[in-house]
Computed example of a mutant assay.
Amino acid sequence: MKPSDLRAELQALRDFSARIGADLLLTQAAGGNTSLKEGDTLWIKASGTWLAHARERDIMVPVQMAPLLDAVANAQPEAEQAQLFVLTDQNPSGLRPSIETTVHALMPHRVVAHVHCVDTIALAVREDAMPILQDRLCGSNWAYVPYRRPGLPLALGIAEHRRDRPDVIILGNHGLVIGAETVADAAALLSQVKQLLKQDARPAPAGDEGALSKLAGNNYRLPADAAAHAVAMDTGSTAIAIGGSLYPDHVIFLGMGSVAATAGETADDVVARLGMAPVEILFPGKGVLMRRDATAGADAMARCLADVTARVPEGAPLRYLTSEENLELTDWDAEKYRQNLDAIASSAIRDVS
Protein backbone atom coordinates (compact mmCIF):
# COMPACT_ATOMS: atom_id res chain seq x y z
CA MET A 1 0.00 0.00 0.00
CA LYS A 2 1.21 3.49 -0.83
CA PRO A 3 2.04 5.71 2.18
CA SER A 4 -0.62 8.15 0.99
CA ASP A 5 -3.24 5.39 0.95
CA LEU A 6 -2.31 4.31 4.49
CA ARG A 7 -2.52 7.90 5.70
CA ALA A 8 -6.00 8.19 4.17
CA GLU A 9 -7.15 4.98 5.85
CA LEU A 10 -5.74 6.01 9.21
CA GLN A 11 -7.53 9.33 8.87
CA ALA A 12 -10.75 7.47 8.14
CA LEU A 13 -10.12 5.34 11.24
CA ARG A 14 -9.55 8.49 13.31
CA ASP A 15 -12.79 10.03 12.01
CA PHE A 16 -14.69 6.82 12.80
CA SER A 17 -13.09 6.68 16.25
CA ALA A 18 -14.01 10.27 17.02
CA ARG A 19 -17.63 9.65 16.04
CA ILE A 20 -17.76 6.62 18.32
CA GLY A 21 -16.13 8.58 21.11
CA ALA A 22 -18.71 11.36 20.84
CA ASP A 23 -21.56 8.89 21.39
CA LEU A 24 -21.97 8.27 25.14
CA LEU A 25 -24.12 5.25 24.38
CA LEU A 26 -21.14 3.62 22.64
CA THR A 27 -18.05 4.67 24.60
CA GLN A 28 -17.28 6.49 27.82
CA ALA A 29 -14.04 8.29 28.72
CA ALA A 30 -11.01 6.14 27.80
CA GLY A 31 -13.10 3.03 27.19
CA GLY A 32 -13.33 1.28 23.84
CA ASN A 33 -10.72 0.94 21.12
CA THR A 34 -10.37 0.73 17.35
CA SER A 35 -7.72 -0.73 15.09
CA LEU A 36 -6.55 -1.14 11.50
CA LYS A 37 -4.25 -3.88 10.16
CA GLU A 38 -1.77 -3.15 7.38
CA GLY A 39 0.51 -6.07 6.60
CA ASP A 40 2.11 -7.16 9.87
CA THR A 41 1.38 -3.82 11.56
CA LEU A 42 -1.61 -3.26 13.79
CA TRP A 43 -2.51 0.39 14.36
CA ILE A 44 -4.49 0.48 17.60
CA LYS A 45 -5.77 3.08 20.02
CA ALA A 46 -3.38 3.85 22.86
CA SER A 47 -4.24 2.85 26.42
CA GLY A 48 -5.77 5.62 28.48
CA THR A 49 -6.57 7.85 25.49
CA TRP A 50 -10.10 8.84 24.49
CA LEU A 51 -11.60 7.88 21.14
CA ALA A 52 -13.35 11.25 21.23
CA HIS A 53 -9.93 12.94 20.85
CA ALA A 54 -8.92 10.94 17.77
CA ARG A 55 -9.06 13.85 15.33
CA GLU A 56 -6.98 16.34 17.31
CA ARG A 57 -4.55 14.04 19.15
CA ASP A 58 -2.17 11.27 18.17
CA ILE A 59 -3.86 8.26 19.81
CA MET A 60 -2.88 5.39 17.45
CA VAL A 61 0.07 3.10 18.19
CA PRO A 62 1.76 0.74 15.65
CA VAL A 63 2.30 -2.80 16.94
CA GLN A 64 4.12 -5.66 15.21
CA MET A 65 1.63 -8.51 15.14
CA ALA A 66 3.69 -11.61 14.30
CA PRO A 67 5.78 -11.72 17.51
CA LEU A 68 2.75 -10.72 19.59
CA LEU A 69 0.67 -13.56 18.15
CA ASP A 70 3.59 -15.94 18.66
CA ALA A 71 3.70 -14.93 22.34
CA VAL A 72 -0.04 -15.60 22.60
CA ALA A 73 0.27 -18.99 20.89
CA ASN A 74 3.03 -20.01 23.31
CA ALA A 75 1.28 -18.57 26.38
CA GLN A 76 4.28 -16.36 27.12
CA PRO A 77 3.96 -13.62 29.77
CA GLU A 78 4.91 -11.06 27.12
CA ALA A 79 1.51 -11.61 25.51
CA GLU A 80 0.05 -9.41 28.26
CA GLN A 81 2.58 -6.64 27.53
CA ALA A 82 1.76 -5.38 24.06
CA GLN A 83 4.04 -2.39 24.62
CA LEU A 84 6.98 -4.76 24.04
CA PHE A 85 5.92 -5.11 20.40
CA VAL A 86 5.46 -1.43 19.56
CA LEU A 87 7.30 -0.11 16.49
CA THR A 88 9.04 2.62 18.45
CA ASP A 89 10.37 4.47 15.41
CA GLN A 90 6.74 5.12 14.37
CA ASN A 91 5.55 5.99 17.88
CA PRO A 92 7.12 9.39 18.65
CA SER A 93 4.66 10.07 21.46
CA GLY A 94 5.79 6.97 23.35
CA LEU A 95 2.21 5.81 23.79
CA ARG A 96 1.34 2.39 25.17
CA PRO A 97 -1.08 0.22 23.16
CA SER A 98 -4.55 -0.67 24.42
CA ILE A 99 -4.94 -3.45 26.97
CA GLU A 100 -7.13 -5.11 24.33
CA THR A 101 -4.36 -5.27 21.70
CA THR A 102 -4.37 -9.08 21.70
CA VAL A 103 -8.14 -9.06 21.06
CA HIS A 104 -7.65 -6.93 17.95
CA ALA A 105 -4.64 -8.93 16.75
CA LEU A 106 -6.50 -12.22 17.02
CA MET A 107 -9.56 -10.96 15.15
CA PRO A 108 -9.15 -11.91 11.45
CA HIS A 109 -10.81 -8.70 10.25
CA ARG A 110 -8.77 -5.79 8.95
CA VAL A 111 -10.75 -3.19 10.92
CA VAL A 112 -11.94 -3.91 14.47
CA ALA A 113 -13.91 -1.79 16.92
CA HIS A 114 -14.52 -2.66 20.56
CA VAL A 115 -17.07 -0.48 22.31
CA HIS A 116 -18.81 -0.38 25.68
CA CYS A 117 -22.20 -0.02 24.03
CA VAL A 118 -24.76 0.76 26.75
CA ASP A 119 -27.56 -1.16 25.00
CA THR A 120 -25.28 -4.18 24.60
CA ILE A 121 -24.10 -4.10 28.21
CA ALA A 122 -27.69 -3.90 29.45
CA LEU A 123 -28.23 -7.27 27.75
CA ALA A 124 -24.79 -8.77 28.39
CA VAL A 125 -25.17 -8.52 32.19
CA ARG A 126 -28.32 -10.64 32.10
CA GLU A 127 -28.27 -14.36 32.81
CA ASP A 128 -31.10 -14.79 30.29
CA ALA A 129 -29.33 -12.84 27.54
CA MET A 130 -28.87 -15.66 25.01
CA PRO A 131 -32.46 -16.09 23.78
CA ILE A 132 -32.83 -12.31 23.49
CA LEU A 133 -29.58 -12.03 21.52
CA GLN A 134 -30.54 -14.95 19.29
CA ASP A 135 -33.76 -13.18 18.41
CA ARG A 136 -32.23 -9.72 17.94
CA LEU A 137 -29.19 -10.89 15.96
CA CYS A 138 -30.93 -13.53 13.87
CA GLY A 139 -29.28 -13.59 10.45
CA SER A 140 -26.05 -12.02 11.70
CA ASN A 141 -22.72 -13.87 11.93
CA TRP A 142 -22.24 -13.45 15.67
CA ALA A 143 -20.84 -15.15 18.76
CA TYR A 144 -21.12 -14.78 22.51
CA VAL A 145 -18.12 -14.90 24.85
CA PRO A 146 -18.88 -15.25 28.58
CA TYR A 147 -17.06 -12.80 30.85
CA ARG A 148 -13.29 -13.05 30.94
CA ARG A 149 -10.82 -10.49 32.23
CA PRO A 150 -9.94 -7.92 29.54
CA GLY A 151 -6.63 -8.55 27.80
CA LEU A 152 -5.25 -12.00 27.08
CA PRO A 153 -8.01 -14.07 28.79
CA LEU A 154 -10.65 -12.25 26.73
CA ALA A 155 -8.58 -12.58 23.56
CA LEU A 156 -8.31 -16.34 24.04
CA GLY A 157 -12.06 -16.54 24.55
CA ILE A 158 -12.60 -14.72 21.26
CA ALA A 159 -9.99 -16.91 19.54
CA GLU A 160 -12.16 -19.97 20.24
CA HIS A 161 -14.57 -18.61 17.61
CA ARG A 162 -11.98 -17.76 14.94
CA ARG A 163 -12.95 -20.65 12.68
CA ASP A 164 -16.46 -19.21 12.30
CA ARG A 165 -15.06 -15.72 11.78
CA PRO A 166 -17.94 -13.88 13.50
CA ASP A 167 -18.35 -10.24 12.53
CA VAL A 168 -20.15 -9.45 15.78
CA ILE A 169 -19.08 -10.63 19.24
CA ILE A 170 -21.07 -9.96 22.40
CA LEU A 171 -18.87 -9.91 25.49
CA GLY A 172 -20.57 -11.02 28.69
CA ASN A 173 -20.52 -8.24 31.33
CA HIS A 174 -18.41 -6.11 29.04
CA GLY A 175 -19.57 -4.89 25.64
CA LEU A 176 -19.35 -5.41 21.90
CA VAL A 177 -16.70 -6.17 19.27
CA ILE A 178 -17.31 -5.83 15.53
CA GLY A 179 -15.00 -6.56 12.61
CA ALA A 180 -15.01 -5.64 8.92
CA GLU A 181 -12.61 -5.20 6.03
CA THR A 182 -12.97 -1.42 5.66
CA VAL A 183 -13.61 1.47 8.01
CA ALA A 184 -16.83 2.28 6.18
CA ASP A 185 -18.10 -1.29 6.54
CA ALA A 186 -17.17 -1.31 10.23
CA ALA A 187 -19.08 1.92 10.80
CA ALA A 188 -22.16 0.58 9.01
CA LEU A 189 -22.08 -2.71 10.94
CA LEU A 190 -21.69 -0.98 14.29
CA SER A 191 -24.65 1.28 13.56
CA GLN A 192 -26.75 -1.71 12.53
CA VAL A 193 -25.91 -3.77 15.64
CA LYS A 194 -26.49 -0.82 17.94
CA GLN A 195 -29.99 -0.45 16.50
CA LEU A 196 -30.71 -4.20 16.72
CA LEU A 197 -29.77 -4.24 20.41
CA LYS A 198 -31.47 -0.98 21.36
CA GLN A 199 -33.12 -1.07 24.81
CA ASP A 200 -35.79 1.28 26.14
CA ALA A 201 -34.65 3.30 29.15
CA ARG A 202 -36.94 3.86 32.14
CA PRO A 203 -37.58 7.58 32.57
CA ALA A 204 -36.44 9.22 35.79
CA PRO A 205 -37.02 12.70 37.24
CA ALA A 206 -34.19 15.19 37.49
CA GLY A 207 -31.96 15.07 40.54
CA ASP A 208 -32.50 17.46 43.43
CA GLU A 209 -29.19 19.29 43.23
CA GLY A 210 -30.19 21.81 45.90
CA ALA A 211 -30.72 19.04 48.45
CA LEU A 212 -27.55 17.25 47.32
CA SER A 213 -25.43 20.38 47.77
CA LYS A 214 -26.47 20.49 51.44
CA LEU A 215 -25.40 16.86 51.87
CA ALA A 216 -22.05 17.15 50.08
CA GLY A 217 -19.85 18.60 52.81
CA ASN A 218 -16.32 19.58 51.84
CA ASN A 219 -15.28 16.34 50.17
CA TYR A 220 -18.06 15.73 47.66
CA ARG A 221 -19.54 17.58 44.68
CA LEU A 222 -22.26 17.31 42.08
CA PRO A 223 -21.53 15.07 39.07
CA ALA A 224 -20.21 16.63 35.86
CA ASP A 225 -23.24 15.28 33.97
CA ALA A 226 -26.66 15.79 35.56
CA ALA A 227 -27.89 12.65 33.74
CA ALA A 228 -25.86 10.62 36.26
CA HIS A 229 -28.52 11.37 38.91
CA ALA A 230 -30.98 9.02 37.21
CA VAL A 231 -29.50 5.93 38.86
CA ALA A 232 -30.66 7.25 42.24
CA MET A 233 -33.96 8.69 40.99
CA ASP A 234 -35.39 5.36 39.87
CA THR A 235 -35.83 2.63 42.48
CA GLY A 236 -35.23 -0.15 39.97
CA SER A 237 -31.95 1.37 38.81
CA THR A 238 -30.81 1.91 42.40
CA ALA A 239 -31.51 -1.70 43.31
CA ILE A 240 -29.54 -2.94 40.30
CA ALA A 241 -26.58 -0.65 41.04
CA ILE A 242 -26.16 -1.58 44.69
CA GLY A 243 -26.23 -5.28 43.79
CA GLY A 244 -22.57 -5.21 42.74
CA SER A 245 -20.23 -4.51 39.83
CA LEU A 246 -21.66 -5.20 36.39
CA TYR A 247 -18.70 -4.49 34.04
CA PRO A 248 -14.93 -3.81 34.22
CA ASP A 249 -14.72 -0.04 33.71
CA HIS A 250 -17.11 0.51 36.62
CA VAL A 251 -14.63 -1.24 38.89
CA ILE A 252 -11.64 0.64 37.49
CA PHE A 253 -13.09 4.15 37.76
CA LEU A 254 -15.80 3.96 40.44
CA GLY A 255 -14.66 1.04 42.60
CA MET A 256 -16.32 -2.24 43.42
CA GLY A 257 -20.10 -2.01 43.35
CA SER A 258 -22.10 1.06 44.32
CA VAL A 259 -22.86 2.69 47.66
CA ALA A 260 -26.23 4.16 48.64
CA ALA A 261 -26.83 6.48 51.57
CA THR A 262 -29.56 5.62 54.04
CA ALA A 263 -32.34 8.06 54.95
CA GLY A 264 -30.98 11.18 56.64
CA GLU A 265 -27.31 10.46 55.95
CA THR A 266 -24.93 13.09 54.60
CA ALA A 267 -21.83 12.28 52.54
CA ASP A 268 -19.72 12.59 55.71
CA ASP A 269 -22.04 10.17 57.49
CA VAL A 270 -21.61 7.60 54.72
CA VAL A 271 -17.82 7.91 54.85
CA ALA A 272 -17.85 7.50 58.62
CA ARG A 273 -20.12 4.44 58.39
CA LEU A 274 -18.00 2.73 55.76
CA GLY A 275 -14.58 3.80 56.99
CA MET A 276 -13.72 4.86 53.42
CA ALA A 277 -14.76 7.50 50.90
CA PRO A 278 -16.55 6.02 47.86
CA VAL A 279 -15.95 7.71 44.52
CA GLU A 280 -19.73 7.97 44.03
CA ILE A 281 -22.58 7.93 46.56
CA LEU A 282 -26.19 7.34 45.58
CA PHE A 283 -28.82 9.29 47.55
CA PRO A 284 -32.13 7.60 46.68
CA GLY A 285 -34.74 10.12 45.55
CA LYS A 286 -32.19 12.95 45.40
CA GLY A 287 -29.38 11.95 43.02
CA VAL A 288 -25.66 11.25 43.28
CA LEU A 289 -22.57 12.95 44.62
CA MET A 290 -19.00 12.44 43.42
CA ARG A 291 -15.92 12.60 45.59
CA ARG A 292 -14.31 15.97 44.97
CA ASP A 293 -11.18 14.41 43.47
CA ALA A 294 -13.13 12.09 41.15
CA THR A 295 -11.56 11.96 37.70
CA ALA A 296 -13.12 12.72 34.34
CA GLY A 297 -13.23 8.97 33.77
CA ALA A 298 -15.16 8.48 37.00
CA ASP A 299 -17.71 11.11 36.00
CA ALA A 300 -18.15 9.42 32.64
CA MET A 301 -18.71 6.06 34.31
CA ALA A 302 -21.26 7.57 36.70
CA ARG A 303 -23.27 8.63 33.64
CA CYS A 304 -22.75 5.17 32.14
CA LEU A 305 -24.07 3.48 35.28
CA ALA A 306 -27.27 5.51 35.03
CA ASP A 307 -27.62 4.71 31.33
CA VAL A 308 -27.04 0.96 31.76
CA THR A 309 -29.23 0.38 34.81
CA ALA A 310 -32.12 2.30 33.25
CA ARG A 311 -32.10 -0.20 30.37
CA VAL A 312 -32.15 -3.33 32.53
CA PRO A 313 -35.74 -4.46 33.30
CA GLU A 314 -36.59 -4.61 36.98
CA GLY A 315 -36.39 -8.19 38.19
CA ALA A 316 -34.18 -9.39 35.31
CA PRO A 317 -31.74 -12.11 36.46
CA LEU A 318 -28.31 -10.48 36.57
CA ARG A 319 -24.79 -11.80 36.55
CA TYR A 320 -22.54 -9.55 38.69
CA LEU A 321 -18.75 -9.76 38.69
CA THR A 322 -17.47 -12.03 41.45
CA SER A 323 -15.10 -10.89 44.20
CA GLU A 324 -12.26 -12.66 42.41
CA GLU A 325 -13.09 -10.93 39.12
CA ASN A 326 -13.19 -7.55 40.85
CA LEU A 327 -9.75 -8.16 42.36
CA GLU A 328 -8.32 -9.31 39.03
CA LEU A 329 -9.09 -5.86 37.68
CA THR A 330 -7.95 -3.74 40.61
CA ASP A 331 -4.66 -5.64 40.98
CA TRP A 332 -3.79 -5.59 37.26
CA ASP A 333 -0.88 -3.38 36.20
CA ALA A 334 -2.47 -2.51 32.85
CA GLU A 335 -5.54 -1.07 34.56
CA LYS A 336 -3.43 0.79 37.11
CA TYR A 337 -1.70 2.43 34.14
CA ARG A 338 -5.07 3.58 32.77
CA GLN A 339 -6.10 4.90 36.18
CA ASN A 340 -2.87 6.88 36.44
CA LEU A 341 -3.35 8.46 33.00
CA ASP A 342 -6.93 9.37 33.91
CA ALA A 343 -5.76 11.00 37.14
CA ILE A 344 -3.05 12.99 35.35
CA ALA A 345 -5.46 14.21 32.67
CA SER A 346 -8.11 15.17 35.24
CA SER A 347 -5.54 17.06 37.31
CA ALA A 348 -4.51 19.03 34.24
CA ILE A 349 -8.14 19.93 33.55
CA ARG A 350 -8.63 21.12 37.17
CA ASP A 351 -5.43 23.20 36.98
CA VAL A 352 -6.64 24.95 33.81
CA SER A 353 -10.09 25.63 35.18
Rank of each mutant, 00 (worst) to 15 (best):
F283E: 07
A260F: 06
C304D: 09
T295F: 08
C304Y: 09
D307I: 00
C304T: 06
A272I: 08
T295V: 07
A296I: 02
L254N: 15
R292H: 12
R291I: 04
A306I: 03
M290N: 02
E280K: 10
D299H: 15
E280Y: 02
N326R: 05
V312G: 07
V270I: 03
G315H: 06
V270P: 11
A267M: 05
L318R: 02
L318A: 14
C304V: 09
G285K: 02
V308H: 07
V312Q: 04
I281G: 11
L274I: 09
A316Q: 10
G297Q: 07
S258T: 10
V259W: 06
M290G: 01
S323N: 13
L305K: 10
A300V: 00
L305R: 13
P284N: 06
V279Q: 11
T262P: 00
C304G: 05
L289R: 04
L318P: 00
G275W: 08
I252P: 04
Y320D: 01
G264K: 01
R273W: 03
M276I: 04
L282W: 05
L282Y: 00
T309P: 09
V288C: 12
G257Y: 08
L289I: 10
R292N: 07
N326H: 11
G285V: 03
N326L: 08
A261K: 00
E280W: 01
L321Q: 08
Y320A: 02
T266Y: 01
A267K: 04
L282N: 11
T262I: 08
T322L: 13
D307F: 03
V308D: 05
A300W: 08
V270H: 08
R292E: 07
V259K: 02
R291H: 15
R319S: 15
L321M: 14
A294I: 05
T295D: 01
D269A: 15
E325H: 05
S258F: 12
C304R: 12
S258V: 07
E314T: 13
A267F: 04
A310H: 14
M276A: 15
G264D: 04
V288Q: 00
A296V: 03
G297L: 00
L254E: 09
L274W: 08
L289T: 06
R311I: 14
V288A: 10
A300S: 15
T322V: 01
D307K: 07
A272L: 07
A298L: 04
A316E: 05
V312S: 07
P284A: 13
G255I: 13
E265R: 00
T295S: 14
G285Y: 09
L289A: 05
V312D: 08
C304H: 12
P313L: 12
L289K: 02
G315K: 02
G285H: 07
V271N: 08
D268C: 01
L274A: 09
D293E: 15
A298E: 00
G285R: 03
G257D: 04
A306N: 03
A296G: 13
T262M: 11
R273K: 15
V271T: 11
A261D: 07
P317N: 11
V251F: 12
E280F: 00
